[in-house]
Design a protein around this nucleic acid. Structure first.
Lengths: 147, 147
DNA sequence: TGACTCATGTCAGTATTCTGACATAGCCTG
DNA sequence: CAGGCTATGTCAGAATACTGACATGAGTCA
């Protein structure tokens, strides 16, 4: 590698992408032994916190399209991690729920992922940890209002 | 959508992913009219800042595999945005450079992307902008040392 | 009631990225 | 010099996510 940081390291966008990439790599690393991908885990975690979420809601929560989430859900259902009613109770929305097996699988994953999060925060002081939340929330808000 | 934020909004990992996703969406939005993807732009920007970068170095800088970067480079070379020598001057490394056309194309994209970055920072005070850099760099560093 | 709009679930095809594998070049150590 | 180790470029196949499209159900409004 030549020399680092002519201008890139002064770009917050690049830094954000770099951090996100590092987080993804670290998560994949701890989830792989459990036979789980990041999206896989995200889906289960979302369902644990808000049982009955629909396919589209899960997709938004995991930052993928509803089509992608649909194929994941079909696999998770086939393997017995989640259940969906055959027919929609109301409208077309199929509320999804974790099975006991899904819950057990999630528990191990949560421990692993939490360790990554702890590591990520380990270099930050208390005020900086609070600052991280505030700053990221501000960025998200600013990026989403009119382009 | 049910209710937001039982626990997810208190997870810095989730927030980081959310911010990164919002940034990606915003960048795709301004780059699409220019017929450019984010990875496409990243590659050109890297080459502008450090001419002569190899395929593998570009891949690391854009956070993709060298195989993915290779197919992108082949397309960019075919379309006349970059050039690579037919034979390696030393070893197997093929130094890549922007063509005038690539430079022109990048200029427009840089303006568009910079506007996104400005928007992202618009809600932050000066100290918070400095804090953002320091915090993200700390996270990256912590995530990369031994898992 | 009927038309319009929006959101959902799902199917099909496409595109992009990744994993696995191979040959080769440079580095370094004995 | 020989061997091992690492990094590179590249090819091929698999996995993953996306775009486009369709039918259906809910909500709104005249």
């Amino acid at each position: 590698m030549s020399q680092d940081g002519v201008d890139l390291k002064t770009s917050l966008g690049y830094l954000l992408k770099e951090a996100s990439s590092a987080l993804r790599v670290a998560m994949e690393e701890v989830l792989r032994p459990l036979g789980m991908t990041v999206t896989h885990y995200s889906c289960l975690e979302l369902l644990a916190q808000r049982p009955g979420l629909s396919n589209s809601e899960l997709a938004r929560g995991a930052f993928v399209t509803r089509q992608s989430m649909n194929v994941l859900l079909q696999a998770l259902e086939r393997d017995g991690y989640v259940t969906r009613p055959a027919a929609a109770p109301v409208g077309k929305v199929l509320p999804t729920r974790l099975t006991p097996r899904g819950r057990r699988s999630l528990e191990k994953a949560t421990v692993a992922v939490r360790s990554v999060e702890v590591r990520m925060l380990s270099g930050l002081t208390g005020p900086d940890q609070d600052g991280a939340f505030r700053i990221l929330q501000s960025m998200i808000h600013s990026l989403r209002e009119g382009g």
